[in-house]
Design a protein around this nucleic acid. Structure first.
Lengths: 138, 138
DNA sequence: CCAATAAATGCACGTCCATTGCACTCTTAT
DNA sequence: ATAAGAGTGCAATGGACGTGCATTTATTGG
């Protein structure tokens, strides 16, 4: 049994061929990916399967869902020890307006915000848009 | 000529009947509104007109566009002296998961974030999700 | 005032993505 | 081996955004 299969099983996910492929694909990408990205990468893959696979991964806590403001949902594998489902790992995301890629800046947490009284925060999403290091050439 | 007409003209917008109505509608709402909200409020209104009216308002700098993570674009009138189009008024937004309303917290600016080297920030969007003061009953 | 021009509006599409229902297949447990 | 359950594939729906074009309305110059 491979590492990936173990990871899936440890999180209560049956390691089917499709799921392992999708996991591998996400693991080798350093950027957040959209459903369509996977769909294009695997011509054989059915959109619905991908959709539900990502949903399963998300429910089981091994990927997190990213809204980068493009209107297209992106997904990324959680880091080791990521507690995003507990709202304790609210790192921010960077969306490059040039190459359209979105990356997790896992080292950069969202600063604490003092809300007006009566407001109860449950989740936070911070997206910085700009030019990524690859596109800026620095 | 009313105040609203003056405001529109001062910003290079021809004050048509439709535009005045839309402006009034937004002014009396204290929350960010979606295109569909206006569409439902004015049965007579054509969606395209609303869409382009909001776009015009946005281009001329009297409303700002809000992405609250619901996937539905919201709009809100800019405050007096708002410089959102210059990225100098990056206040944050609060989205209530109970009543689904989104409000501008204009007094709460997005804190400065230190990005990794090579990354150039151009814009920022911070949305806090939770329970608003009306729904929390506090 | 009227014609010519420009702006605004209305209508009809088309697209893209998220999401669901249903049937079929494969795996697992009895 | 068979039944139950999970996973997958196919088809279809619906919501929201966006565009092209014709029509109407407003503005401007003669």
């Amino acid at each position: 049994m491979t590492e990936i299969e173990k990871t899936l099983e440890n999180n209560g996910i049956r390691p089917t061929a499709m799921r392992i492929l999708i996991y591998k694909f996400m693991a080798k990408k350093e950027v957040a990916i959209a459903l369509t990205d996977i769909e294009n990468a695997f011509v054989k893959a059915e959109r619905t399967t991908l959709y539900r696979t990502l949903k399963t991964f998300e429910d089981k806590g091994i990927v997190h869902h990213i809204d980068d403001g493009t209107g297209i949902s992106k997904y990324a594998l959680c880091e080791q020890g990521c507690n995003c489902e507990l709202d304790q790992d609210l790192h921010l995301h960077f969306h490059c307006s040039n190459c359209d890629k979105t990356v997790c800046l896992t080292d950069h947490k969202i600063p604490h915000i003092n809300l007006p009284s009566g407001y109860i925060a449950e989740d936070a999403n911070l997206v910085i848009t700009g030019i990524c290091e690859k596109c800026s050439g620095q």
